[in-house]
Design a protein around this nucleic acid. Sequence first.
DNA 1: TGAATATATAAATATTTTTTTATATAATAT
DNA 2: ATATTATATAAAAAAATATTTATATATTCA
Lengths: 125, 125
Amino acid sequence: MENILNIFKALCDETRLRILKLLENGELCVCDIVAALDMIQPKVSFHLGVLKEVRLIKDRKQGKWVHYSIDDSDIFKRFLLLSTLERISAETVSEDTKRLKDFLKIKHQKANVVSMSSRTVCCGR
Amino acid sequence: MENILNIFKALCDETRLRILKLLENGELCVCDIVAALDMIQPKVSFHLGVLKEVRLIKDRKQGKWVHYSIDDSDIFKRFLLLSTLERISAETVSEDTKRLKDFLKIKHQKANVVSMSSRTVCCGR
DNA sequence: TGAATATATAAATATTTTTTTATATAATAT
DNA sequence: ATATTATATAAAAAAATATTTATATATTCA
């Protein structure tokens, strides 16, 4: 019971569903998600922690960055996520996707300049 | 989003999962559930209301009684419930099932006496 | 009709969860 | 070394949810 209950507790929050929806298309680092959701970073970290705790997502550390992605090692969770996320239309999260797109664009532009000047910037702050 | 979110909000509570597990074997009236969970009646009514609101369960009124049962008119919810409830072992809810069994036994005994003396008692209080 | 029973609802309280603000940690760059 | 960047965490405040207590409604029974 404990287990399935905690999965639902992790899924019963709008912010966390938005995060999962963002991760549907592949891994993102924390600052990507912060930009996409337009929320402050500790808030996003909190929700990532909740999702990670029940293993709906996993993380991968690389230098200063932490990349999060859907953890599809469990077949039940995989199916649950699949059927859940397909019930959230792209339209519903269009603002998030737009902000993410814009952010990644600028980030990659900077990364190019950076690779020439040998700096390493993610959020450009 | 609203819709799937509210389904998870309804499912993210232990009492409500216990209620659903009880209803797995067919409809029960409120006083059956109150006895099985060993909780006060307004608390049970509150949780039944939450489940009914998102149409995970439905009710059927008959005289003084209200009978609740799983609402399986929606295929997604049906599947979700099926796969959820099978993840809650009978062992986990054995106390609930025991109390329910005991309660129904006494209730039916009374109902028999009652049918002879033409009274209508449910909870015997 | 009046008492008893089954359930629902409203208001007050308690608890849990989320959000914010401040700060810590760890990696990289200068 | 020191500053900057990315992320996490702790503590306080705010918001949401659940629980209790009291009461209302509706049905049946005597």
